[in-house]
Structure formats: structure tokens, C-alpha cells
């Protein structure tokens, strides 16, 4: 029993960390730009496919591919922001929602056209034989996923807390007009935020894609989870997104393990309903600080 709980918690943490990584980007984009980015799931999907293309077709080293895939998706994100979102600055949130939904449909179908509906598996440089640690079973790909995820989250955290650019991001988030008056090029901050968010989603896509399989519609479920996490943690809350992701992952694991796996996805939504009823601004919504 205890072993099972432990294993389920670890399973949950693995999934939860990638939920967190996806959600951090989503919550940053929302908090900073007031854009609900429905394209986020597609950045996640593209991350997986770029890594697949680089490893399977171009035979690049796996770790190099991970980095290149993330950078490539960031480039895509940057272009999307400049071309589609920048001209809509100051327009209502509904307008940008329509644009990001449209872009999401476009990218998903483009991937379907390019890579086809056949699921793909990213070739890994190590064997995925199970590693038995006491009562707990894990694989390298999962350990790697969790480590890289936390590495990325810490990196982004440091960037936001320590660098001048990060401070400018926080300033924009807290008082946009004052940031403008302080000479912060808010347009550049927006572009950077969106690009960074896309990169984080891509990172999650590459890592989960390495554990599971990749296919054009893989972003649908990812963005659904990311929205749950963002609501759990409070819209625009960085720390909230990380905790929310881990909470969702572990609750799902335990719920599926001890209640019923048929209700696994329902658990996330029950959590959201409870949060919205009792803490409408999210678990960590009060501290609206980046």
C-alpha cells in the first residue's frame, strides 16, 4: 500500500512537472499581455515534432536536438507574436482569443499535412529499461524529463528575478504605463515573453514526447491541463503555476490509483470547480506578483 502511494506520487510528480512547464509559459503570457494563448498546445506539439525531425531524420544528437527544437519553436513563437498579435495590441481579449484559436487550428493542420497522422516516437540515446530504486520503478527518460523541466523552471525564475530584462518584465507586469515611462520598450518585452512562453511549451513537448509518442493533435490535451493548472495557481502567477502543475499531477496519479482511472481527467476539473467556488482567484491568486 505505502509502496503504491509512493509510486503514484512519483508518477504524479513526473507528469506534474511537465504540466507546470507548459502552464508557466501560458500564465506568463496571460499575466503580461492579457492574451489567452490557445496556440500554446501547438508550440508543445511542434517541440515534439522538431525534436523528432532532428533526431530521426537528421540524426542529430538527442540533447542537441532538444535545445535546437526549443529554439526553433521560440523562433516560430516570435514570428507569430510579431505578425499576428503585435498589430492587435490594446484590442479586446476576445479578438486575440480568436486569433490564437485560429493559429492553433492552422498549425495543427499544417503538422498533420507535413508529418501525417501517424504517431511518431523520438529515438532516445539511452535504453528505457526500468530502474528499480527500492520499491520505486522509474526510467531514464522520466528522470531526464523531470530534471530538465526543473532546470528550465529555475533558469526562467533566475532570469525573471535577477536580470535587467526580467526586472523590466516584472515592471511591465506590475505597472505597464510606469514601465513605459521608465523607458522600458514594452513591445520588446511582449515579444520576448511570448517567445519564452513558446519555448517552455516546446520544452515540455520534447520531454513528454520522448516519454510517450508525438502526433499532431497531442497539444489538445496538453493545453487543457495547462489551463487547469493556470486556474489552480491563479492567472498570471508564476509560482502558482509550478505548484498547480505538481498538485494536478499528484492528484491525478493518486485519484487514478485509488479512486478510478476512468475519472482521471475529471479529477482536474473537479479541482478547478472547487477552486473557483472557494478561491476564485486561484490557490495562490492573492500574491499577484511575478
Amino acid at each position: 500500500m505505502l509502496t503504491e502511494v509512493l509510486q503514484q506520487v512519483i508518477n504524479g510528480l513526473v507528469m506534474g512537472s511537465t504540466y507546470a512547464l507548459t502552464a508557466v509559459g501560458l500564465t506568463m503570457i496571460f499575466g503580461m499581455m492579457r492574451v489567452v494563448n490557445f496556440t500554446h498546445g501547438e508550440f508543445y506539439m511542434l517541440g515534439g515534432f522538431f525534436a523528432f525531425q532532428l533526431t530521426a531524420s537528421l540524426h542529430l544528437n538527442y540533447y542537441v536536438s532538444v535545445v535546437v527544437a526549443i529554439l526553433a519553436v521560440m523562433a516560430v513563437g516570435f514570428v507569430c507574436e510579431r505578425v499576428l498579435l503585435a498589430p492587435l495590441r490594446g484590442k479586446s481579449i476576445d479578438t486575440t482569443v480568436l486569433v490564437t484559436i485560429g493559429l492553433s487550428i492552422f498549425l495543427q493542420n499544417l503538422a498533420l499535412l507535413w508529418w501525417g497522422p501517424t504517431p511518431k516516437s523520438i529515438p532516445l540515446p539511452f535504453s528505457n529499461t526500468p530502474l528499480q530504486w527500492g520499491p520505486v520503478v522509474l526510467t531514464w527518460s522520466r528522470i531526464l524529463a523531470v530534471s530538465i523541466t526543473f532546470g528550465l523552471i529555475v533558469l526562467v525564475h533566475l532570469l525573471i528575478q535577477k536580470s535587467l530584462l526580467g526586472k523590466a518584465m516584472r515592471a511591465t507586469f506590475q505597472e505597464k504605463d510606469a514601465a513605459l515611462l521608465a523607458g522600458v520598450d514594452v513591445e520588446r518585452i511582449y515579444a520576448f515573453t511570448f517567445t519564452l512562453g513558446a519555448g517552455l511549451a516546446a520544452g515540455a513537448g520534447v520531454l513528454l514526447g520522448s516519454i510517450f509518442l508525438i502526433y499532431p493533435s497531442m497539444g489538445n490535451i496538453a493545453i487543457l491541463k495547462a489551463f487547469i493548472v493556470v486556474i489552480l495557481g491563479g492567472m498570471g502567477n508564476f509560482i502558482g503555476a509550478i505548484c498547480g502543475g505538481l498538485i494536478l499531477g499528484v492528484t491525478e496519479g493518486l485519484g487514478a490509483g485509488f479512486v478510478s482511472s476512468g475519472y482521471k481527467d475529471a479529477i482536474g476539473f473537479v479541482l478547478v470547480i472547487l477552486i473557483l467556488m472557494f478561491r476564485p482567484s486561484g490557490l495562490f491568486g492573492k500574491a499577484r506578483r511575478l
Binding site: 497531442m218 482511472s261 481527467d265
Partner: peptide, 20 residues
């Protein structure tokens, strides 16, 4: 008997249950 939603990717919870 473990049911999963169509499109589910993570089966660690169900498999942990089955293993015990």
C-alpha cells in the same frame, strides 16, 4: 478493470495499480 479517456498518454497510475 481500468478505463482510460481516448487520447490519454500517461498510464503509470493504472499500471502501478495493476502491478500490486
Amino acid at each position: 478493470t481500468e478505463y482510460h479517456a481516448p487520447g490519454e498518454i500517461n498510464f503509470a497510475p493504472s499500471l502501478t495499480k495493476i502491478s500490486t
